[in-house]
Amino acid sequence: MSSHAACGAREGEPEALLQVRDLAVHYVGAGGEEAAVLEEASFDLAVGETLGVLGESGGGKSTLALAVLGLLPPNGRVTAGRVSFHGRDLLRLSRRDLDQVRGDEASMIFQEPGVSLNPCMRAGDQVADVARVHRRWPAKRCREEARAMLELVGFDDSDGVFGAYPHQLSGGQKQRVVIAQALVCRPALLIADEPTASLDATTQAEIVALLRDLRQRLGLAMLFVSHDVALLHSLVDRMIVMYAGQIVESGSRDQVVLKPSHPYTRELLRCVPGGAEKGVGPGRPRLPTILGSPPDPARWPPGCRFEPRCPDRLESCGARRPEPRPAGDAGTVRCLLYDD
């Protein structure tokens, strides 16, 4: 692998739909201090592929998803890197050109569907509006497309939903409307940031099944951000794991979940309660935990960022920064244990 050992990047394959290289983001705090919340993030996403982004809060997974489509909040700024999508660098597009890509060729959905919808506009009109803005079709055609899309996302009564206001819809229904909005222009890429985290288990399963189905039908590539390991494992092709603003591991979903390379991934997976009862009453064994807490983004440790909490740390880990290394089957790991 070259010096640009990209986490998740597979060399020698046809060009990816989305290629992210060395992406870095800084946030500016209230006092003007800068924090490097994302660093050296590199990955590829092929046409029709689903890539999961796993991590805990503060790991940088939402920042990564937002930065790809230029949706960082005003205090966030991309400081380095390249995001090429369909061969164009999204980071160098004008606001106007970027607006043409977003919602048309690439869309994003979020955790709270209620926040993404206009409370004063009928659901169907909100879907039709996306088609109107991007396609400039006549109003009638936009409505027809919207209705067809609402059917595609699983509404049997598409007329009823079309005329409903967001407050008349349940959380799962709202998320379906948002998905219809995101897909009405048939994008090649959907970025989903915890789209099911606010839904109950059965609704979550329905939405995941819907996304799986749409991915097939529309040849959609997905970047799916979640803290839920089991959910990601059931949905994605490959996974990247983030900790303290870096991609610490990447690989096929089975490799990451069943044979994790990075100590953080391994420790995180151990925190998930196992599949069987562990005895009854308060005497049941305690869950494994990760010592300490994640470092402060304003003061990253000089060496490996997981070193202060790592059970496998070597003497050199506190001082030397690990670089991504190839690991397992087309995966990468950022850990000195794997250095030769």
């Binding site: 288990a201 059965t202 979550q204 399963a205 995941v208 839920d228 390991v229 089991a230 959910l231 494992h233 059931s234 979940v257 069943l258 044979k259 994790p260 391994r266 997976l269 151990r270 998930v272 196992g274 599949g275 009862e277 494994p288």
Partner: peptide, 27 residues
């Protein structure tokens, strides 16, 4: 969890992805 009797319980259990684990087990 082992012998759910009501169909709705089975539905709930089926809807929740369970983390598969390596045979060797991670602790």
């Amino acid at each position: 969890f082992n012998e759910p009797r009501h169909p709705h319980t089975r539905e709930l259990l089926a809807a929740t992805p369970v983390l598969e684990r390596a045979a060797a087990g991670g602790g």
